[in-house]
Design a protein around this nucleic acid. Structure first.
Length: 882
DNA sequence: CTACTCACG
DNA sequence: ACGTACGTGAGTAGA
C-alpha cells in the first residue's frame, strides 16, 4: 500500500502572505461585486503547486479561532500591538473556505488555540501512525515541528515557492536543532508576537548560549558558572520572562482536537463547484486551465453598427456624447486604428470602419464647440483624430484625468481596469479583450464591437461619478483650469515634434565607436583578459577578485561597480579611469545617439515624444518613447547631443526659458519662512545666503565655492526630506557634522522646520498631502509600523507639496503661453517641457517679441509671496540655447 | 522579468 | 537600532 501522506496548511498565515504578496495589484483583483480576491487567488496558486508536488492522501487547513487563546490568558500582551487585519483581507476569508470546499479540503479551528497548535497536535498523531507529514506555512516558527517524518515548507517571498525545512536544514540555517527554536524564542523573545524574552539578548546571542548549554533550563541550572557581566544580570533578572516566553513559543501537541486523521482524507477537487466559484471570483486564468471561459459581464448591451446609410442618424444625438477611438499600440503617434464608438448610453453607434470618421457628420460632431465630448484619455484621442484629419473641440469629462486627480494611483491606461478600480464592472479590461504583449490583437468583430459599445456607458457613468468626487475634494478648478486644457497643449506639442539632424547623430556615432574601441583595448590590457565591460557581474569579478581592488560597497547580487564606488578607487589603478570613460561614452552612444536615431519619424525627420500626464505621484509630467526630459547637459560630451536638436525651418532659432530655483521659491512661499523669503525678495544668491546663515559668516565675501557647494546640498536636502546620513554621503562629511548643519539650518529657518513637522502631521490626520492647486497624494504608509516605509512617507509628505506645486506653476504657464501664441497669431511653437524649463522654436521675425513674452508669461503664472525668476537663452540648436 | 547603472529636473 | 535623500525612463545583462 502507498504510504500515507498528510498535508497540513496554516490557513491564516498563508492568507496573509498571499494578501501581501499581491498587495501591489490589490485593485486588479476584484470580482464584479467589488470583492477583493488577491488572497484567494494567491492561496489557490499555492494549493495547486503544493498538491501537485506532495500528492497527499490526507489534508487539512487549520485556522485561528479568534483573538483570545490560552496564550493571551498567560500573557495579556501576546500578539499585542499588531495592526488590525485590513478589511480587504477579512472580506476574503469566507470565500477562502469556499475555495477549500471546492478543493475537497476540510478546514478546522479550535476555540482558545491557534492554528499552530492544531497542526502540532495532528502532525504528532500522524507521525505516530506512520504518516509522512508536510506542513505549509509562512511562519518560520513552525519549523520547530520538523522531524524525520515531518517537513515544514515555508513560503518564500511569493507564496507559490517554498523552502523545505528538515531537521538538518534547520541546523544548517539556524545553527540549532528544531527543538531548540523555542529556546531561542525564550531568550530573545519575538517582536512580531510581542513577547519579551531576556533584555538585550537577540537571536545571535541566544544561539551562542544554546550552543553551549542546550536549553533554557540547562542554562539556568548553570547560571552561576557564567562570568560576571551585564548579560548575566539580565538573565537572572528576566528568568521568569524567559521561561514564560519559551512556553508561549511552544506549539501544543496535545490540543483537544476533535477531528481525526480518518476524517480528512484527500480525494481530489470538485470541478463543477470550482468552475462555478472561479466564475464568481472572476479567475480567468484558473478557468482557462480547466478549459472554461469566464462568465461574461452580465448585462446585455444594445448598440447599432454604424454605416454610410445610417450615419445621418448621429445628427439626433444630444449635445453631450461619449467617444472612444481604439488604437491597440501604446504609441498613438504610430498605432493602427481598429475601431471607434460614438453616442450616449441609450444610443450607441459602433464601427470598425475608420473611413467613416471622415464623414462630415462625425467631423462636425467632434469639431463642434457646442457638443461636449466625454472620453477616456483626451490627449491620445486628440492626437489620433488629428492624424485622421479630424479636430476635437470640446472635451468635457476625461475619465483618465479625473481618476488620476482623485488618486494618483488610479491611472491605468486600460479603461476596463480603471473602471474596475472605481467599482464599475460592466466591462472587461482591454487586456482581457485584446491580450497583452506579443499576443495583443484585434478580436473577432462581434467581440470588438460589443466591447467598444460598453465603453460608452462606462465613460458616461464614471464621468459623472468622478466629477462629483472632484467637486467634493475641491479639485474642480484643478481639472477644468489646469489638467484638461493642459492635455490639449501637450497634444499640440507632441504633434509639433522637434526636428533632429540625423547626420550630426551619425557623425557622433562613428566618433564614439572609435573611441570606445581604443578604451576597450586599454581596459583589456590592464585587466589581462577580455570580458564584457557592460556586465557589472564580469566587471566586478575582474576588479575585486582578479585585480584584488578593495570592495567599497556590495549589492544584493554581488559587488557594486557604480560611479561613486569607482570614484573611490581612482588612483588604485589606471583601469578605473578607463572604465568610467567607457561607461560615459557607451551610455551616450547607446541611449542617446542610437536611441534617438531609432525614434526619428521618417516622414518629417522629427521626434514626437509622448508625455504621460497621469503617471507621476507628484503631478510632474514624464516623457517616453523617447524620453526628452533627460537629454545630457552636465557633461560636455553628452551635451553635444543637443546639437542634433534643431528648428524645423531655416531662419528659426531654438529658445529655452527656465525657472530659477523654483522649488526653493515654492518652499519659501509655503513655509512662510521670513529669512528664506527675505533672501529671494532681495534677489540674493540663495545658496550663498544659506551658507552665510548656517556657517555664521559675516557676508558674501566669506563664501568660498566649497562652502557654497555644501550649502547648496543642504538646500536640496531640505527639499527632499533631509536625513543626516543622506547629507553626509552627498557632500562627503561626517554624519555628526551633517547633523549639525541641519540643526543650524532649522534654527536659522524656523518656518521650514515648522512646515516639515506640520506636513507630516497633516498627512497623518487626513491621509494625504496637497499642492497649492489642490493636487493630492495619498500616503497610507504614514501609519506603517515599518520604520522604512513610514520614514519614506514622511519625506514624501514634505517633498510632494513642493515638487507638485512647482509642477502646477509650469503647467499654468504652458496653458497661458499657448493661449498667447494663439491670440497673437504667432508662428512660434512650444516644443518641450523639462520640469522647470520650456523650449520653443521661434522664427527670427518673432524673436524680439517672444524673448520678452515667454519669461513674462512664466513669471506671472501664479502669485507667490516671493518673486519667480526666469532665465532665457536661444541659439541655432538646443545646445546653443544656453 | 529583475537588477543594475546612469541620464535628467 | 533601524538604513536613507525627491521625482522620472531606458539600455544591458543574465536569470
Amino acid at each position: 500500500m502507498e504510504k500515507d501522506k498528510l498535508l497540513l496548511i496554516d490557513g491564516n498565515s498563508i492568507a496573509f502572505r498571499s494578501f501581501f504578496a499581491l498587495h501591489n495589484s490589490l485593485s486588479k483583483f476584484t470580482n464584479k461585486d467589488g470583492l477583493h480576491t488577491n488572497a484567494i487567488y494567491g492561496f489557490n496558486k499555492m494549493l495547486d503547486n503544493i498538491l501537485a508536488q506532495y500528492q497527499p492522501t490526507a489534508a487539512l487547513v487549520a485556522f485561528d479561532a479568534g483573538k483570545t487563546t490560552f496564550r493571551t490568558k498567560m500573557f495579556d500582551n501576546y500578539k499585542g500591538g499588531r495592526s488590525k487585519t485590513p478589511p480587504e483581507l477579512s472580506e476574503q476569508m469566507p470565500y477562502l473556505r469556499e475555495l477549500l470546499t471546492g478543493y475537497g479540503i476540510k478546514s478546522y479551528e479550535l476555540p482558545d488555540y491557534e492554528a499552530d497548535d492544531i497542526i502540532g497536535t495532528l502532525s504528532k498523531e500522524a507521525e505516530e501512525q506512520g504518516y509522512s507529514v508536510t506542513i505549509v506555512t509562512g511562519d518560520r516558527d513552525l519549523t520547530q515541528l520538523s522531524s524525520d517524518k515531518t517537513t515544514v515548507a515555508v513560503t518564500k517571498k511569493g507564496v507559490s515557492e517554498v523552502e523545505e525545512y528538515t531537521p538538518s536544514y534547520v541546523e544548517e540555517k539556524l545553527g540549532v536543532t528544531p527543538q531548540q527554536i523555542i529556546d531561542i524564542k525564550g531568550l530573545a523573545g519575538d517582536t512580531s508576537d510581542n513577547y519579551p524574552g531576556v533584555t538585550k539578548i537577540g537571536e545571535k546571542t541566544a544561539i551562542k548560549l544554546l550552543k553551549e548549554y542546550g536549553s533554557v533550563e540547562t542554562l539556568y541550572e548553570h547560571i552561576d558558572e557564567l562570568k560576571k557581566s551585564k548579560m548575566k544580570e539580565h538573565l537572572i533578572e528576566d528568568r521568569e520572562q524567559a521561561f514564560m516566553s519559551k512556553k508561549l513559543a511552544t506549539i501544543k501537541r496535545d490540543a483537544p482536537v476533535k477531528i481525526s486523521l480518518q476524517d480528512i482524507n484527500y480525494e481530489g477537487k470538485n470541478e463543477d463547484f470550482l468552475i462555478n466559484f472561479y466564475q464568481k471570483m472572476n479567475f480567468k486564468s484558473f478557468l482557462s486551465q480547466m478549459n472554461q471561459t469566464a462568465a461574461d459581464v452580465d448585462e446585455e448591451i444594445k448598440f447599432n453598427i454604424l454605416d454610410e446609410q445610417n450615419i445621418e442618424q448621429l445628427k439626433n444625438l444630444p449635445d453631450e456624447i461619449c467617444f472612444y477611438l481604439e488604437m491597440l499600440d501604446k504609441n498613438y503617434h504610430l498605432s493602427d486604428f481598429c475601431g471607434f464608438v460614438i453616442g450616449t448610453p441609450e444610443n450607441i453607434w459602433v464601427s470598425d470602419d475608420i473611413e467613416l470618421l471622415n464623414n462630415a457628420v462625425i467631423k462636425n460632431l467632434l469639431g463642434s464647440s457646442t457638443t461636449k465630448v466625454n472620453l477616456f484619455d483626451g490627449k491620445r484621442t486628440y492626437v489620433g483624430l488629428h492624424r485622421l484629419g479630424i479636430e476635437l473641440d470640446n472635451i468635457n469629462f476625461d475619465i483618465l484625468l479625473q481618476s488620476y486627480l482623485l488618486d494618483t494611483n488610479d491611472n491605468s491606461n486600460d479603461l476596463g481596469q480603471l473602471a474596475h478600480e472605481h467599482n464599475y464592472n460592466q466591462i472587461d479590461t482591454d487586456a482581457e479583450v485584446y491580450g497583452t504583449g506579443a499576443k495583443r490583437a484585434v478580436p473577432e468583430t462581434t467581440i470588438l464591437l460589443k466591447h467598444l459599445a460598453r465603453k460608452v456607458k462606462a465613460i458616461q457613468v464614471l464621468g459623472e461619478q468622478l466629477q462629483a468626487e472632484l467637486v467634493d475634494n475641491k479639485q474642480e478648478k484643478l481639472y477644468w483650469e489646469i489638467e484638461l486644457p493642459l492635455s490639449i497643449v501637450l497634444a499640440k506639442m507632441e504633434i509639433s515634434g522637434i526636428k533632429v539632424n540625423s547626420d550630426r547623430l551619425h557623425q557622433m556615432q562613428s566618433e564614439f565607436t572609435e573611441r570606445l574601441a581604443e578604451i576597450e583595448t586599454d581596459i583589456y590590457r590592464e585587466a589581462g583578459e577580455e570580458f564584457n565591460i557592460n556586465s557589472p557581474k564580469q566587471l566586478g569579478e575582474v576588479l575585486f577578485e582578479k585585480m584584488k581592488l578593495p570592495v567599497i560597497k556590495k549589492t544584493k547580487t554581488g559587488y557594486s561597480t557604480a560611479v561613486d564606488v569607482l570614484e573611490k578607487l581612482q588612483g588604485e589603478s589606471p583601469i578605473i579611469d578607463n572604465i568610467l570613460n567607457y561607461r560615459t561614452i557607451s551610455k551616450i552612444k547607446s541611449t542617446y545617439v542610437e536611441g534617438l536615431l531609432k525614434v526619428i519619424h521618417s516622414n518629417d525627420q522629427k521626434i514626437h515624444t509622448t508625455y504621460l500626464q497621469t503617471l507621476t505621484q507628484t503631478g510632474r509630467l514624464s516623457s517616453i518613447e523617447p524620453n526628452l526630459q533627460n537629454i545630457p547637459i552636465r557633461i560636455e560630451e553628452g551635451k553635444k547631443i543637443r546639437q542634433a536638436f534643431i528648428p524645423s525651418h531655416k531662419g528659426w532659432h531654438i529658445l529655452s526659458s527656465d525657472y530659477s530655483q523654483i522649488e526653493l521659491r515654492v518652499l519659501a512661499h509655503i513655509t512662510g519662512d521670513k529669512h528664506l523669503q527675505e533672501a529671494f525678495k532681495n534677489g540674493e544668491d540663495i545658496h550663498s545666503s544659506t551658507a552665510i546663515r548656517i556657517f555664521g559668516l559675516k557676508d558674501a565675501s566669506e563664501v568660498t565655492p566649497n562652502i557654497r557647494r555644501q550649502a547648496k546640498a543642504v538646500n536640496f536636502g531640505i527639499v527632499y526630506g533631509i536625513s543626516d546620513y543622506g547629507l553626509s554621503q552627498n557632500i562627503g562629511i561626517s554624519r555628526k557634522d551633517a547633523k549639525k548643519f541641519i540643526e543650524t539650518y532649522f534654527k536659522e529657518f524656523p518656518g521650514v522646520k515648522k512646515y516639515i513637522d506640520s506636513s507630516v502631521e497633516l498627512a497623518k490626520e487626513q491621509g494625504y498631502v496637497e499642492t497649492i492647486s489642490h493636487r493630492r497624494r495619498y500616503l497610507p504608509d504614514i501609519h506603517s509600523s515599518s520604520f522604512n516605509l513610514r520614514s519614506f512617507a514622511e519625506r514624501t509628505a514634505m517633498n510632494t507639496p513642493i515638487q507638485g506645486s512647482a509642477a502646477d506653476i509650469i503647467k499654468i504657464a504652458m496653458i497661458n503661453m499657448e493661449k498667447e501664441l494663439e491670440t497673437r497669431n504667432l508662428k512660434t511653437r512650444m516644443l518641450l517641457q523639462v520640469h522647470d524649463e520650456l523650449i520653443f522654436e521661434v522664427p527670427d521675425e518673432e524673436m524680439a517679441e517672444i524673448k520678452k513674452l515667454v519669461p513674462s508669461v512664466m513669471d506671472s503664472a501664479i502669485k507667490l509671496d516671493v518673486p519667480l525668476k526666469v532665465e532665457t537663452s536661444w541659439g541655432n540648436t538646443w545646445y546653443d540655447a544656453k
